[in-house]
Computed example of a mutant assay.
Amino acid sequence: MERPGAHRFAEVSHAPPGPGEVRVAVFAAGVCASDREVYAGTRAEGYVRYPVVPGHEWSGTVEEVGEGVDPALVGRKAVGEGFRACLVCDRCREGAGSLCVGGYDETGFTRPGAFADALTLPARLLHVLDDGADLRSAALLEPAAVVAAAALAAEPRPGERIAVVGAGTLGLLAVQFLAASSPAELLVVDPRIERARQATAMGATEAREPAATGELHGRYDLVVETAGAPTTARDSCLLARRGGRVVLTGLPEPGAAGIDPIHLTVGQITVRTVFGAPSAAWAYAVRAFETGLLAPAALITHELPLEEFARAVALVGGEDPEVGKVLLRP
């Protein structure tokens, strides 16, 4: 992406990985709404640097290592974290790399990403997978790590009433995580009711459109918002019971409906937010994937060659409820 709306394909020679780095042969890379923002030029200032090779959701196989990296990694299947945290600020030292104050730096936005045949990154960001891992499914482990961060923040408890707002990739992955906590109820809310109903095969107990949730306001112990639509943060807080918990993972554009501070204060509702995922959440997501708790393959609806990047972005930006996760295959 030279600039918003302008992309080209180029053949390049890959430099050997430097000290502490690895080069990964990309197997598949997911396309998400933030990639559409990069294409359209609507990503917030400071969170993209053109020209850039996009692609932050990926899976692949290590093909070369740099000085100081274990050569046994060559040939291993892997995924990798996107944030390039500074590792020395107070937040990093607390283990919260996604809150690094050293400046935003992320694969696919400020560093070359995975919409290419190979990707170079620090070896410390790798999460090595079992030899038998399905790399097609593993390409969804980046959004799964975001959902894992939400689940760790939410601390779901057995027998709770839980609602997930949004039935996109994050929402359906959240259903899989939260169903494992044995909730008494697990509602999924989405205006695309057919998308919401897909969640019932993944552990949800009910699916509703937003217009049909008025009677459920104040019912849920935990609400996980995943859509980032203009009203979903506000609506999620309305679904929470007094003393309940809300975790916001969607990233709305400026002008979204605000959350009523009086409602929060009087109801003593706890609101947490998630942006990206720290290393602990990545490790949790990888474990859940390898034990079979997560089954991301069911979310994939389209697989396109890298040359159809523009079509992939258009699919992700459309309103077709039949479009789920779109993968690019270099």
Rank of each mutant, 00 (worst) to 15 (best):
A10D: 13
T107W: 03
G159F: 05
E63I: 14
V128C: 15
L121E: 03
P51T: 12
A118H: 14
V48K: 05
E11N: 01
V128S: 12
R272F: 12
A174Q: 10
L222I: 10
L264Q: 13
L264P: 13
T231W: 15
A150N: 08
V65R: 04
L222H: 14
D134M: 07
G80I: 11
G203Q: 07
R311Y: 12
D134P: 03
F109T: 09
Y47S: 02
P122Q: 08
E303D: 07
V48D: 02
R93M: 06
V22P: 03
V165K: 11
L299P: 08
A184T: 04
A256L: 02
A288N: 09
R43N: 02
S13G: 06
A78E: 07
D190I: 10
A211M: 08
R242T: 12
E290A: 08
G318R: 00
E194F: 00
E185M: 06
D130V: 01
D134Y: 08
A78K: 04
E37L: 11
T226D: 01
H56C: 10
A163C: 15
T200V: 15
G214F: 15
A72N: 00
R111S: 13
A116T: 07
T291R: 15
E11W: 12
L73V: 01
V128N: 12
P191G: 10
E290V: 03
D131N: 06
D260N: 15
G68C: 07
A154G: 15
V188G: 09
F83S: 03
L304S: 06
L126T: 14
D105M: 06
T249E: 00
R8N: 03
R192H: 11
P112Q: 09
G132E: 14
Y220V: 02
H127P: 06
G108K: 10
Q268P: 00
A229D: 04
L135Q: 12
P19H: 07
V164A: 09
E209G: 07
H263I: 02
G166T: 09
A283D: 14
R76Y: 13
A96L: 13
A184D: 03
T120V: 13
V188S: 10
F115V: 01
A145C: 07
H263R: 15
R192T: 00
A281F: 14
R23Y: 04
A96H: 04
T120F: 01
R329Y: 00
E303N: 04
P143L: 02
G46K: 08
S236F: 05
Y220N: 03
L238W: 11
P254E: 03
A72L: 05
E57Y: 07
A153G: 11
V189W: 10
S279Q: 13
G159C: 04
G103H: 05
A148P: 01
G292L: 06
P143R: 06
G317M: 05
P252Y: 01
